[in-house]
């Protein structure tokens, strides 16, 4: 079998002194899609951000190997250039910077790193036309400021479009489905599916099973309180959909008192 693309061992991370990740283990081989599920606050998004190198998080213990090298040693931009892409849950606005100039700068940095020629405006535009099709991106969004005034659906499409342009080895999708209606979800998921390949892997962070109807994972992991508490195949996602996350909580904390009706109601509201 091929070498794994991503190996996470006993990863611990804190934000402002509070431990969020409490020993994550995960191995991802090239071409695989891993779904990370779990209740709110379980550490799913933190895991995504830590892998991409967000400076607000501090790794206190553990190891992450990406393509055989120590990922945690690398600056965020070097991780990106090595092929780690994070599709943000809340894409950031950059007023005054056009989407195309922003992306062209990023694409050319990544290409330089790979030893490829940088793209001039002509070639870049050609590349854009080709890649924007996969998420049916409205071409006018390219000349608008990055994410400024974009609808929720446009922002998420733009993230997947950027991923297509940057051609990463590992795509991390952080709740890409949140805030999308069913049509937008289909388009975004369809875009991701077009980017699947035997060399490219995905870590798909999601709260709901719904996304996984479209992006069918090879493995599903359930995060609870900063740890992977259960792993399985795509059927596990359906089981979660069916039983909710309380089932997991009871499995992890069998001594915990059964919830009263009010807290169950609140839980349902949150969901």
């Amino acid at each position: 079998m091929a070498e794994p693309l991503l190996v996470i061992r006993k990863l611990h991370a804190t934000v402002e002194g509070k431990e969020i990740l409490k020993g994550i283990d995960l191995t991802v081989y090239p071409g695989e899609v891993h779904a990370i599920m779990g209740p709110n606050g379980s550490g799913k998004s933190t895991l995504a951000q830590v892998l991409a190198g967000h400076p607000a998080f501090e790794v206190t213990e553990g190891q992450v190997l990406f393509n055989g090298q120590d990922l945690l040693e690398l600056e965020p931009e070097d991780r990106a250039r090595e092929g780690v892409f994070l599709a943000f849950q809340y894409p950031i606005e950059i007023p005054g910077v056009t989407n195309s100039s922003f992306l062209r700068a990023g694409v050319n940095e990544v290409r330089k790193h790979r030893g490829e020629d940088t793209l001039d405006a002509y070639d870049f535009n050609h590349f854009v036309r080709e890649k924007s099709k996969i998420v049916q991106l409205d071409p006018s969004l390219l000349e608008r400021s990055v994410n400024e005034g974009f609808s929720g659906g446009e922002k998420k499409r733009n993230e997947i479009f950027q991923m297509a342009m940057l051609e990463p080895r590992l795509g991390i999708l952080d709740e890409t489905d949140s805030g999308l209606d069913i049509d937008a979800l289909r388009i975004v998921a369809g875009g991701v599916n077009q980017l699947r390949s035997p060399e490219r892997s995905f870590v798909v962070v999601t709260h709901y099973q719904r996304l996984l109807d479209y992006i069918v994972p090879d493995f599903v992991h359930v995060l609870y309180d900063g740890r992977v508490v259960k792993s399985g195949q795509k059927e596990l996602a359906l089981e979660l959909e069916d039983k909710g996350y309380d089932w997991i909580k009871e499995m992890v904390e069998p001594d915990a008192k059964p919830k009263d009706a009010a807290s169950l109601f609140n839980q349902a509201l949150k969901a």
Partner: peptide, 24 residues
Amino acid sequence: EDQLFYCRQRGLSSEDAISMVING
């Protein structure tokens, strides 16, 4: 910090990220 992180996640160095945000 989030703006800079976003730029860096797309491959820009921190200097380039700052100058991009400021120029915008």
